[in-house]
């Protein structure tokens, strides 16, 4: 018994040490970015890095907002990301559920078809997509940024995989109680999918918040710019303004991290809440 406890204590100790070490590896680049955002350009690439500098200031952040309507970019990105996330969660959970739990002709065909849309690199369909969106007259509108971003096989695929793993008894019990298919989806399956939905919310938001190439191509008016295009605007003919890129990126990273921080308890808490673990 005692040996076991010591063994366990050692195990916990090693695990913490490993987790900390890994955390350090993960945090160092981030730390460098953070410090760089506070530094003048000439101190960023000094090796070994300057940690104690008399030049730390928030000036770069001020310049980010002065040189361009960065607030507007943040707003655009937020609108697009929020709408796509909400719409995506709704549509993809419906699709994922249908593919996993409902029987209908053509199910496998549809699943493979949906999956195969992930297999073409975006650069390949960029020009055709731009042609289509232009024909729709959506260039330079929120439509162009939002609508084509909603359908995406990633979320469908993941939710399908999740719903496949649900025990059938829950559904059957609800059937006997007279619940409809839609009712089971809404009141049995969806609540169980909370961890996946929470994670997907973070991912969708992140993916659209980080979207860059498509917004660049679909909009040419300065007022339609999104955050990532705004950051790329500090790349230049004769080198990039790294101090501004760092500062702008740091601002841009915060909403996603905050969202993740907020939602992660749903991602990991489900087992206890549903009592599935038995």
């Amino acid at each position: 018994m005692k040996i076991e406890r010591t063994k366990k204590a050692v195990g916990v100790g090693t695990w913490y040490a490993a987790a900390l070490l890994l955390a350090l590896v993960f945090a160092v680049p981030f730390l460098w970015m953070f410090l760089s955002a506070l530094k003048p350009a000439n101190e960023i690439f000094v090796n070994p890095p300057i940690l104690i500098s008399s030049h730390y200031s928030l000036a770069n952040f001020g310049r980010v907002f002065q040189q361009a309507p960065f607030g507007r970019y943040l707003f655009n990105s937020f609108v697009v990301s929020a709408v796509v996330t909400v719409a995506g969660l709704i549509f993809h959970s419906m699709s994922g559920y249908a593919l996993a739990r409902l029987e209908f002709p053509g199910r496998n065909f549809l699943f493979i078809g949906i999956l195969s849309t992930l297999m073409v690199p975006f650069y390949t369909i960029l020009i055709p997509l731009a042609v289509i969106v232009r024909h729709l007259g959506w260039m330079n509108t929120y439509w162009a940024l939002i609508i084509p971003a909603i359908p995406h096989a990633f979320g469908i695929f993941w939710l399908r995989q999740f719903f496949l793993g649900l025990p059938r008894d829950l559904e059957d019990a609800a059937r006997i109680d007279g619940a409809s298919r839609v009712g089971i989806f809404l009141f049995v399956a969806l609540p169980l999918a909370r961890p996946v939905l929470a994670a997907l919310a973070v991912f969708f938001f992140l993916a659209n918040w980080d979207a860059f190439l498509w917004p660049l191509i679909a909009t040419s008016r300065p007022e339609m710019r999104v955050v990532q295009v705004g950051i790329q605007a500090y790349t230049g003919e004769h080198g990039n303004a790294w101090e501004l890129i760092m500062a702008a990126s740091l601002i841009a990273i915060l909403p996603t991290l905050f969202l993740f921080f907020l939602l992660q308890r749903f991602i990991v808490a489900s087992a206890r809440m549903t009592g599935l673990k038995g």
Partner: peptide, 11 residues
């Protein structure tokens, strides 16, 4: 209208 330098040609 202007575009980020890094992607100007792609645009």
């Amino acid at each position: 209208q202007r575009f980020p330098f890094a992607q100007y040609y792609d645009q």
